[in-house]
Design a binder for these strands. Sequence first.
DNA 1: ACCGTGACGGCGA
DNA 2: TTCGCCGCCACGG
Length: 105
Amino acid sequence: MKVTAFQQLVYEACKRIPKGQVTTYKLLAQAIGCGSAQAVGQALRCNPFAPEVPCHRVIGSDLRIGGFFGERSGAQITRKLTLLASEGVHFTDNVLAEQSALFRF
DNA sequence: ACCGTGACGGCGA
DNA sequence: TTCGCCGCCACGG
């Protein structure tokens, strides 16, 4: 399993997100000095360290759920929602319910 | 080295 | 407000 330096940065950043909070792809990208949120998503899409790296705590800038393991909807998304719910972060219609749960590094 | 793709974002229509 | 187009950056073929 090949892991690029860039991906390491992304995963490191993810681990900094406190439990019970979430951040956005854009914020995460900025945190590691990358100008593309999409690039971050690309790194997470193949996340080799599933729950070890809390990639489920990363959502879109519009506070929408985003995706999970390459799926914009479906069982995986449900799984992501479930994980977040178990951490105290709740969503309504795939949108973050409590903005106060947004972590800003 | 070139090209197409994507868990994204912002703006204009 | 929703939809589409373009810009973004890293990756795989």
